[in-house]
Structures are given as structure tokens and as C-alpha cells.
């Protein structure tokens, strides 16, 4: 079932910084997994260990059943990596750079395949361009092309849309979907919650080197998502009567909107009772609106909770 299996992985850098603490993670074949976390949470370290760029302090990683240290030749051939930094040479041509990447990954030259990759990424016209002269977005595409030229089964995208314009971001999402259709497992790290919400199947949250949770995106929102009912009143209220105290309502500054937070998965959400109590209290309702909490709210709450625990 899982294509990448991470067990008890820890990493302490030479300066004593512990970037990962006993991380366990199963990445399922063919899924899109988004790893969310603030800067310095350990996302890049985790990816780097799986790809062989950083040595782990302890723990193990297997890819398709092969150990990433002992059988590194097999595991690395299966993996493609798009790094966060625009780490490219300066003076070579796009085409040469791709040939270099393919060779590194022990694949014999295949111009037809390279052409396909370049065309998929709208880079074909730029194949003879010098890397240094490309725009940031183009460089990002070249990095993706370089990661794909050896036909990997697992693709790591480390913040693929950081500093990328809206159009390119949408292109990137489409590309990710296209790769998934082709059976490639995709792991992406991101700051952008909407990105995870838009394209991921599962979401993992990392903070301070710990994997706080991994869950199906919908299940996660279901489990942790709260809902709010906003009640707009015809005339503003200054204070609430005692009968409404149990509902812990929030009053907006102008006194027009009452906000009720509830758990939509409970049999009794309390809305019915609230409505009746409001009517009894003599308020007249003008409008109502329910708001679902987004992945972003969930994420912020998790990180906050984790930070406070540690402090």
C-alpha cells in the first residue's frame, strides 16, 4: 500500500539543532500528500533525508520496500526532487542541463522523452536558452523538468509555488494532477493552505520537527473543523440577556452580529434551542450565515497548541 515508509526518523544537525524528532509516516502509492508547517519546521530536512541529501541521525526510510541507505541506487532512481531554492547552473543551456540530470540518474539518453517533458512544461521554446537568462518562473519549471527526466515514481516538490505568480501556480496544480493520473506519488511542502486544500488527498502537519498529524484532508476538516453561525440582527444590542449566557455568543463591535460556534457533527448542535431563546428574548433576526473553518484555521490552531505545549 505505502510506497514510502518512514520510521522513527530523527535528525540533529552538527550545531545541535534537532530538526526531526522520531517521525513516522506512511506515504501511500499514488496519493498527493501535502506537508504543512511553518519555516524551520523540518519539512525540507525530512525530504532531504528521503532523497539522500542529508544523513539521518537515526531511523529508517524505505521506498517501494527498499532501504534508502543500503539500496540507495534503487530508491533514488524511483525518486525525483524539485528543491525549494532555484539551484541551477548559470551558463548551460536548458537542454544540456536536462541531459545531465537524466544521465546522473543512470538513464540512457532519450531525446524524445526530453522533448515531451519540455513541451508539457511549456519549455520547448526555451530549450536552447541559457539558464541564467531565464525568469524565476521559468527556472522553477526547469527544476521540475530536471526532476522528471528520469521518469520517477515518487516526486517531491519542496515549496513548488513559493514566489510564483497565480497563473504559474494554477499550471503547477494542473501538472501535479496530470502526474498523479500517470501514477506518480507526489509529496509537496507548502506554506499555502489553499494549495493543500486544492490539490492534496492527505495533509500532514509538521512543527518543531514533530509530525503532529496526518489525515485525509476531508476527514481532517471534519474532525477538527468547527462551524460558526452568524446571526445578523435588525437592531443592535449592547448586552445579552442572561438567558443567552450559556451559548457563549460573541457580539460584533457594532452589536449587529452574534456569532455562535458549534460542532456540526454532534446530534444536538444547540441551534434549535438558540433560535427559540433568541425569539423569546425579543430580538428580530435579519439574516443568517454559517461559516466552515478552513484548513488554515485548523493549521493555525494546531501550531499554536504545539507551540504553547513546548513553551
Amino acid at each position: 500500500m505505502s510506497i514510502v515508509s518512514i520510521s522513527n526518523l530523527s535528525k540533529t544537525y552538527a550545531d545541535g539543532f534537532q530538526a526531526l524528532k522520531n517521525v513516522d509516516l506512511e506515504i501511500r502509492r499514488g496519493e498527493i500528500l501535502a506537508l504543512l508547517g511553518p519555516n524551520g519546521a523540518g519539512k525540507t530536512t525530512l525530504i532531504s533525508i528521503i532523497c539522500g541529501i542529508v544523513n539521518a541521525s537515526s531511523g529508517a526510510v524505505t521506498v517501494d520496500g527498499y532501504d534508502s541507505v543500503k539500496d540507495y541506487r534503487i530508491t533514488r532512481e524511483l525518486i525525483g526532487l524539485v528543491p525549494q531554492e532555484l539551484a541551477l547552473g548559470a551558463f548551460e543551456k536548458v537542454w544540456d542541463s536536462l541531459c545531465f540530470s537524466r544521465g546522473l540518474f543512470a538513464k540512457k539518453p532519450d531525446p524524445a522523452y526530453l522533448e515531451k517533458v519540455l513541451k508539457d512544461l511549456a519549455l520547448w521554446d526555451k530549450r536552447k536558452a541559457i539558464l541564467m537568462e531565464l525568469s524565476g518562473g521559468m527556472k522553477r519549471r526547469v527544476l521540475i523538468a530536471k526532476a522528471l527526466v528520469h521518469e520517477p515514481r515518487v516526486l517531491f516538490l519542496d515549496e513548488p509555488t513559493a514566489g510564483v505568480d497565480v497563473e504559474l501556480r494554477k499550471d503547477m496544480w494542473a501538472l501535479v494532477e496530470q502526474l498523479r493520473q500517470a501514477g506518480v506519488t507526489i509529496i509537496l511542502t507548502t506554506h499555502y493552505i489553499e494549495e493543500a486544500e486544492a490539490i492534496a488527498d492527505r495533509v500532514g502537519v509538521i512543527n518543531r520537527g514533530e509530525l503532529l498529524l496526518v489525515d485525509d484532508k476531508h476527514a481532517l476538516m471534519h474532525k477538527l473543523g468547527k462551524r460558526q453561525l452568524e446571526i445578523e440582527l435588525v437592531s443592535p444590542v449592547a448586552a445579552l440577556p442572561a438567558s443567552l449566557a450559556d451559548f457563549s455568543l460573541e457580539i460584533s463591535r457594532d452589536g449587529n452580529i452574534l456569532t455562535y460556534t458549534y460542532d456540526p457533527h454532534k446530534a444536538d448542535t444547540g441551534i434549535d434551542k438558540l433560535m427559540k431563546t433568541i425569539a423569546t428574548a425579543g430580538f428580530t433576526i435579519k439574516d443568517m450565515n454559517t461559516v466552515k473553518s478552513s484548513l488554515e484555521d485548523i493549521f493555525v490552531n494546531l501550531i499554536k497548541g504545539n507551540g504553547e505545549d513546548a513553551a
Binding site: C51, R73, A87, L88, F105
Partner: peptide
């Protein structure tokens, strides 16, 4: 130079001894 530009990631992540 590849260490300086960061390109070295590619060599390190490749199936190469």
C-alpha cells in the same frame, strides 16, 4: 561551485556512489 550554487543536491540525490 555546485555546492555554492546549491546544484549539488542533484548529484547527492542521484543513484551514484
Amino acid at each position: 561551485f555546485p555546492r555554492f550554487t546549491g546544484q549539488i543536491y542533484e548529484v547527492l540525490s542521484a543513484p551514484i556512489s
